[in-house]
Nucleic acid binder design. Structure first.
Length: 123
DNA sequence: CCATTGACCGGCT
DNA sequence: TAGCCGGCCAATG
């Protein structure tokens, strides 16, 4: 991979973070960067997505921009695919936009909802 | 040090 | 609501 601007460790953290986004929810670039330990590194996420190997099937379609819109060009094939795959798991997409208030991934909240046992009884 | 790259972000017309 | 603009970061040559 000669045309890579990011190191393996960085790419790995970004990809892993994206893999953590649960089905039916979306995250924006800045959020993924932040969770990956790269504050304000939204553009690094763009790059990471661009070079992600085909065999590694990460849920790239769950990543949209901070305005709640699909980031790929509307006339590209990927745009349609992203919308379809999101709808397939229950995310409502209208004119390329998603209501972030309803579908934004909130890691902390999900922890509480899906893994109630993790810890509010231990300190 | 400078330029380059990326499916961005936030503030401001 | 829609653009424009400057800023943003990691890594490379």
């Amino acid at each position: 991979m000669a045309n890579r601007k990011l190191g393996d460790a960085t790419l790995e953290r970004i990809w892993a973070t994206i893999e953590d986004i649960p089905p039916g929810r979306v995250a924006n670039y800045g959020q993924v960067a932040e969770l990956a330990g790269l504050p304000r590194g939204a553009r690094l996420v763009c790059y990471a997505l661009r070079v992600v190997p085909e065999e590694r099937r990460i849920p790239w379609f769950r990543v949209i921009n901070a305005q709640g819109r699909i980031a790929i060009a509307k006339d590209s094939p990927g745009y349609k695919e992203q919308a379809e795959r999101l709808r397939a798991e229950g995310v409502v997409v209208n004119g390329g936009r998603v209501d972030m208030r309803k579908f934004r991934w909130e890691p902390d909240l999900d922890e509480l909802l899906w893994k109630p046992s993790v810890s509010w009884d231990q300190s």
